[in-house]
Simulated assay, not measured.
Amino acid sequence: MPPPNVPGSLHMGHAMFVTLEDFMVRYGRSTLWLPGTDHAGIATQLVAERMLTSEGIKRVELGRDEFAKQVWKWKEKYGGTITNQIKRLGASCDWTRECFTLDEQLSRAVIEAFVRLHEKGLIYQGSYMVN
């Protein structure tokens, strides 16, 4: 499942694609449809900052580690909105295997992939724009 962002809620485009993906999984080849959500770093930081601001707290006053804890706290409280909406749409995912893009195992896999690509010379720093 292309993971939707944690800080939002589904819109009609999401509903359409969840429906199409569900149809393909149910009536196509036997496959695992793994559900998950994306951390959407900047968007999640923004909504967590807004929450703190409403409580009279500024992000810079907290420091990096404490702010990160507050973001995780926000995710734990509000991050299930999209998951619950997808469940209500009837998506036939294997919900016992739900993932989040900042889960420890996924983060390690991303780092490993980048290291391997760098070792092969496929990731490098250059002086030109990249889309």
Results as ranks from 00 to 15, higher is better:
residue 129 M to W: 01
residue 27 Y to I: 03
residue 75 K to F: 03
residue 95 W to N: 11
residue 73 K to Y: 06
residue 1 M to W: 06
residue 42 I to K: 08
residue 106 L to M: 04
residue 90 G to T: 01
residue 46 L to G: 13
residue 49 E to W: 02
residue 128 Y to A: 10
residue 60 V to S: 15
residue 49 E to S: 15
residue 2 P to F: 00
residue 126 G to K: 09
residue 17 F to P: 11
residue 115 V to G: 02
residue 51 M to R: 14
residue 128 Y to G: 12
residue 63 G to R: 00
residue 13 G to P: 08
residue 110 V to H: 03
residue 128 Y to V: 04
residue 66 E to H: 11
residue 64 R to N: 14
residue 21 E to D: 14
residue 76 E to T: 03
residue 124 Y to A: 06
residue 29 R to P: 12
residue 102 L to G: 10
residue 58 K to C: 12
residue 103 D to A: 03
residue 62 L to C: 02
residue 56 G to H: 05
residue 89 L to G: 07
residue 6 V to Q: 01
residue 53 T to Q: 15
residue 106 L to F: 06
residue 94 D to L: 04
residue 28 G to I: 00
residue 20 L to H: 05
residue 89 L to P: 13
residue 44 T to K: 01
residue 9 S to F: 11
residue 80 G to T: 05
residue 91 A to V: 01
residue 92 S to L: 01
residue 53 T to C: 13
residue 49 E to L: 07
residue 27 Y to W: 13
residue 76 E to W: 02
residue 115 V to M: 06
residue 12 M to A: 15
residue 102 L to V: 13
residue 23 F to M: 03
residue 85 Q to W: 02
residue 38 D to E: 05
residue 57 I to M: 07
residue 69 K to P: 11
residue 97 R to N: 04
residue 81 T to Q: 10
residue 105 Q to N: 14
residue 1 M to F: 10
residue 110 V to D: 00
residue 111 I to E: 09
residue 89 L to M: 13
residue 79 G to M: 02
residue 112 E to C: 08
residue 54 S to P: 10
residue 51 M to I: 00
residue 56 G to Q: 06
residue 102 L to M: 15
residue 122 L to G: 09
residue 15 A to H: 03
residue 34 L to D: 03
residue 44 T to L: 04
residue 116 R to K: 14
residue 11 H to P: 14
residue 104 E to Y: 08
residue 94 D to P: 10
residue 1 M to V: 07
residue 130 V to C: 13
residue 94 D to N: 14
residue 100 F to M: 06
residue 122 L to H: 15
residue 63 G to E: 03
residue 82 I to A: 04
residue 103 D to K: 00
residue 80 G to W: 06
residue 79 G to N: 06
residue 82 I to G: 02
residue 5 N to S: 14
residue 56 G to L: 06
residue 111 I to T: 09
residue 116 R to C: 06
residue 57 I to L: 10
residue 18 V to L: 11
residue 69 K to N: 14
residue 93 C to G: 12
residue 73 K to T: 11
residue 120 K to D: 09
residue 126 G to F: 07
residue 41 G to K: 01
residue 17 F to R: 02
residue 129 M to S: 02
residue 89 L to W: 02
residue 129 M to H: 07
residue 87 K to E: 04
residue 21 E to Q: 14
residue 71 V to H: 03
residue 20 L to F: 06
residue 75 K to R: 15
residue 79 G to E: 02
residue 71 V to T: 07
residue 56 G to R: 10
residue 26 R to P: 12
residue 47 V to L: 11
residue 59 R to F: 08
residue 95 W to H: 07
residue 87 K to P: 03
residue 48 A to W: 02
residue 75 K to I: 15
residue 78 Y to L: 09
residue 45 Q to G: 11
residue 13 G to Q: 04
residue 15 A to F: 04
residue 69 K to C: 09
residue 124 Y to R: 06
residue 58 K to Q: 14
residue 109 A to W: 00
residue 102 L to H: 10
residue 12 M to G: 12
residue 50 R to H: 10
residue 99 C to E: 07
residue 118 H to R: 13
residue 60 V to H: 15
residue 46 L to A: 15
residue 112 E to T: 11
residue 39 H to I: 00
residue 67 F to K: 04
residue 131 N to K: 10
residue 41 G to V: 00
residue 96 T to F: 00
residue 32 L to S: 07
residue 8 G to D: 01
residue 105 Q to Y: 09
residue 2 P to T: 00
residue 98 E to A: 05
